[in-house]
Amino acid sequence: MVKHIKLVGIDKTFHTKTGDVTALKNIELDIESGEFLSVVGPSGCGKSTIMRIIAGLESPSAGTVQINEQELTGIADGAAIVFQKDVLLAWRSVLDNVLLPLDLKGITWFDRGNHITNRKKAIDLLESVGLKGFEDKYPHELSGGMRQRVSICRALIQDPKLLLMDEPFGALDALTREQMMYDLLKLSNKYKFTTVFITHSIEEAVFLSDRVVVMSERPGTILKELPIELVRPRDNKTRSNPVFNHKVHEIRDIFQSQGILAET
């Protein structure tokens, strides 16, 4: 069970051929259970690295990640990742792609993807994102938005306590993006997982989150944490809410004062 995630004094340095690169510097972050947290920052600021460190894919050069007051070593349990690329397996049907985590993790036959209840669960998940009737299609037969929906289903079939998303809508067109945001809000409301959402879109971050973490350019540090006090469920009207606009401007101002955004 992932309840409370705590990042304490995280530094991350990559050793490359051209020398050491400090990606993160002294990151302190608390994530509440059930919270929707977004990390927004310019390209290369190390925001993806934060996600990878929480997932246990990368180990910090200094500092610790604590999950439920236990130090994280190795891969985080109960966490599922949605990557920027959908990374669907071309040789598996849509349904089998969703069932992949169960196929791989299942110890007995009953845990595995071929079990009836698991298949039913996968079909329900696909239906909830508008992919009913696509179970037997192959990924190449789907559009980019549909593929990313399948990869979200693949993450959710594991009943994650923590959903980590690394610019999941970055490769999609603007309209599909918007639809995906609504879908994600719906799913997050239904399954109540904690979400860490990495993005470079300010509007996306404000619209989706309970809290937005604003990051500086490399070496990545946290410039500010902004709570977003917008009521849920959020919908189209949220965007015309003065609070929404105020928060978006506040984040823009931070980037402007840092020279990340310049008007002239």
Partner: peptide, 10 residues
């Protein structure tokens, strides 16, 4: 990323 997916599944 596909390799990371495998790793994240433990």
């Amino acid at each position: 990323e596909m390799h990371d997916l495998g790793r994240s599944l433990g």
